[in-house]
Design a protein around this nucleic acid. Structure first.
Length: 139
DNA sequence: AGCCTTTGACCAGCG
DNA sequence: TCGCTGGTCAAAGGC
């Protein structure tokens, strides 16, 4: 890995947080830190972050992500019919200050679905972070 | 022909 | 009030 978390992060990201932090989004930041740190031992795996409210079905899709994160998903598989089974359209790209990777912005292609996601991608195509916003109103 | 990606410009929030 | 930054728009080009 070519980045490190500050000491405070490492101290906070205890195994308990790893297991409990992903349950709800009450502590989004905590789970962000926990998820990021927990997956830090496998650099090829993306870091999935769920923002805003997580509903039942969203938790399911979150599980999907986590399952894919475990092994079968190639990190380079970013496409219109993306890793999570939804159709996404890219609408922007930005270089975020402090981050060495550009961030891409995607909207769900389904009509009346306002879900968006942000993906940070490394030079070699590896996903370093995914942030979801909103809830899909379709399967 | 239609949809998607790219990319520079624009906008809004914040310090 | 101003500058910086993240997020979005929209035109252009490609597939």
């Amino acid at each position: 890995m070519d980045f490190q978390f500050p000491v405070e992060f490492s101290e906070e990201a205890t195994p308990e947080k790893c297991t409990s932090g992903s349950r709800t989004d009450v502590n989004v930041l905590d789970s962000m830190i926990a998820n990021a740190t927990c997956s830090s031992d496998s650099p090829s795996n993306p870091i999935y972050v769920q923002s805003e409210t997580i509903h039942e079905e969203n938790i399911e899709s979150h599980h999907h992500l986590l399952e894919e994160q475990k092994g079968t998903l190639p990190a380079t598989a970013i496409g219109r019919t993306s890793d999570d089974g939804y159709n996404w359209r890219k609408y922007g790209k930005k270089l975020i200050k402090g981050s060495e990777h550009p961030r891409s912005y995607y909207k769900c292609n389904h009509e009346n679905c306002l879900v968006k996601k942000k993906i940070e991608c490394a030079h070699d195509g590896q996903i370093t972070e995914i942030i979801y916003k909103g809830t899909h109103n379709h399967p």
